[in-house]
């Protein structure tokens, strides 16, 4: 505890860097996954192709991907952008399947009713399908958030510093406290992100507050099986 107090400036600096490195992959990953998930859900062929690509992408280990990206996209080796691109790719790989499954779970009767009431494709998607798939999307996004916050630490190995710096530094100095600070800090950030996402979900989807138990169970099971493919 004393160590944290006396090194607070360093802890807070790397903690903040950790937060800033985690946000873009989660946000961009989600924004990109919704249209891709829609396409994946729309046609049988695109579903097979897109979900297979997502599965392969998700199977690629993170550290080798960080090392591979500079020569693929022409960035510098130690540039944080490599970590950001890799984590965004993982977020998309995870979210596309969840989005496709969430949209597929929207009842056909509801969609037909919306069409019958004169909703066009776009309005029906944003006004009916997306909100109804919301709980499943939220569950998927929570998994993405947790794994992104945890994966950011691997960037420290190639010099992109976050709380993961304390793992490397702690090992080199044989100093257990520092490693603990890194681990607890990472878990705390993941927890805060998770709570924020849940609150955001309640604010955006007020109807889920009451019927929580049932939908949440479905969403949890779906996100678990999404991770398993």
């Amino acid at each position: 505890m004393n160590w944290v107090v006396s090194n607070w400036s360093q802890v807070s600096e790397y903690g903040l860097a950790h937060v800033w490195l985690s946000i873009p992959p989660i946000v961009i990953g989600f924004a990109v996954s919704v249209p891709i998930g829609w396409v994946a859900n729309r046609y049988r062929l695109s579903r097979g192709v897109l979900l297979t690509v997502a599965g392969i992408l998700y199977a690629i280990p993170s550290l080798p991907l960080f090392a591979l990206l500079p020569s693929l996209v022409g960035t510098r080796i130690l540039d944080p952008i490599n970590v950001e691109i890799a984590l965004t790719l993982y977020a998309i790989a995870l979210m596309v399947r969840t989005t496709a499954d969430g949209l597929a779970a929207v009842s056909d009767d509801v969609k037909l009713s919306a069409s019958a009431m004169g909703y066009g494709t776009l309005r029906r998607f944003f006004g009916v399908e997306l909100p109804l798939a919301g709980p499943v999307l939220l569950a998927g996004l929570r998994v993405v958030s947790v794994s992104t916050v945890s994966l950011v630490t691997i960037g420290s190995v190639i010099g992109v510093n976050s709380l993961g710096f304390f793992f490397i530094d702690g090992y080199q100095r044989d100093f257990l406290t520092e490693v603990w600070v890194g681990i607890i800090g990472t878990v705390v950030i993941a927890l805060v992100f998770d709570v924020l996402l849940v609150l955001l979900g309640r604010w955006l989807m007020p109807w889920t507050r009451r019927q929580r138990a049932a939908t949440r169970n479905l969403a949890v099971v779906q996100s678990e099986t999404a991770v398993l493919r």
């Binding site: 947790v146 190995v157 993961g164 702690g170 090992y171 490693v179 890194g182 681990i183």
Partner: peptide
């Protein structure tokens, strides 16, 4: 078990490996 396995997912892998190696 379910919340427990969920919490495990938040553990940074490198951190856990180094923690146990030092310990």
């Amino acid at each position: 078990v379910v919340p427990f396995t969920g919490a495990l997912r938040a553990l940074p892998t490198l951190g856990l490996v180094i923690l146990l190696a030092l310990g």
